[in-house]
Design a protein around this nucleic acid. Structure first.
Lengths: 214, 214
DNA sequence: CAAAGGTACTTAACACTGTTAATCAATCAA
DNA sequence: TTGATTGATTAACAGTGTTAAGTACCTTTG
């Protein structure tokens, strides 16, 4: 049955090419400008062909969302070799923030937009967002490592992990939606540094709180 | 010149009616389903009439965004009578979270979506987001009140305010986009409480960090 | 070999969207 | 009574996601 395999591979091929075209448009022009028709034009197929490989647009959004998590895990992968859990926690936070700054479009798709999660809920209700869980599990383990070394007292590790995620996500989210920009300009006196280092500064403020929990 | 006044009032009247119709659709059906044509149908006018009163759709989005800030300030207004600044800070956080839970659509328009800020940047570059500044100024003052009473040591008040905002916004944002829901189900063992109190619990974890800074 | 069936893809169409140009009717000032 | 201004409308453009129907082509079967 070699033919079936070839066909299957060909099918996968086109599916991959669709995603590649979608990613290209998405990165260069943003999500808004990434329409089904433009993706189809990019690979020189009819728009309706897309629907033979992806259920709807949210399906493509979720696929791109997964691509983004691939990039994020890549950044985090090397951090597994950092022995000191608190150092690792700090590095994870900085890596997360840097990822959001480097790939704002991906970040939006992964953590701000509703589409991908809507797809997940609508078409795979049994699966529990494997991409997110995988990264978050790493965070929990790191927090538990910190606790084992005497940090954070008797605090709940999962809640501590959620708090840390909320801090960096809040920072990245307000940065990307340009909410920070509009209030930073006003109140930036001598104390607050430039826009560039604002995220890092506020994150350090958080780290100072954590360090006093040792 | 009584006629001109009447005309002006009439103009304001229709502008207000458009916004009211937009708000009604927005609250009941969400932002996606709130189209120019549906707003027009609601007030029984032609779709193009909208453009005589609002520049484009982001203009309407910003007007709704302002409405939302009116609601938020309403919640915060009574807190000005709380003398103890740390108690006020805690109450502001809880009020902010409760606002996001009660009015998720408004919250999205105010702090998650890009449209309103885009409108601000495009059509009023000189103004620096007065709604946001007004609320944020209140937060800074509260943090400075805390510092005056010996909290937060020598930490920068503005950065501390930004951190606090990031924490609650991160929580609310991840809650509304249903990111939290998908990871909470998995990891919720005995320790982590129900979905309902998750935001409050993580916020309390943050407060515990703050309290140790006294 | 020819008929039948399935696969991969396309064309045409539906029901929308935001937005603009041109137009019409009514009211105002000269 | 003209003429200009104002307020609202119709028609249209250029796009969107999505579905139903149709067309080639290739494989399998009689």
């Amino acid at each position: 049955m070699g033919i079936k395999e070839r066909k299957g591979r060909h099918k996968e091929d086109l599916k991959a090419r669709i995603l590649e075209a979608a990613k290209k448009l998405f990165i260069t022009k943003g999500y808004e400008a990434t329409s089904i028709r433009k993706i189809a034009a990019e690979i020189e197929f009819s728009p309706t062909t897309i629907y033979l490989y992806y259920k709807d647009k949210t399906d493509i959004a979720y696929a791109l969302h997964q691509e983004g998590f691939g990039l994020l895990r890549e950044r985090f992968s090397t951090l597994e070799y950092v022995d000191d859990p608190f150092e690792r926690l700090k590095a994870m936070g900085r890596g997360y923030i840097q990822f959001a700054v480097d790939h704002p479009d991906f970040y939006e798709l992964m953590f701000i937009m509703k589409e991908p999660m809507q797809y997940l809920q609508a078409h795979h209700p049994e699966e529990e967002w494997p991409e997110g869980e995988r990264v978050f599990d790493g965070l929990i383990q790191t927090v538990e490592g910190c606790k084992a070394r005497g940090y954070f007292g008797d605090m709940n590790a999962e809640e501590m992990a959620m708090l840390s995620w909320s801090v960096v996500h809040g920072l990245c989210s307000l940065h990307i939606t340009s909410h920070f920009k509009h209030i930073a300009e006003k109140c930036s006196q001598v104390a607050i540094a430039k826009q560039d280092t604002l995220l890092e500064n506020v994150f350090q403020t958080y780290l100072q709180l954590l360090e006093r929990m040792k």
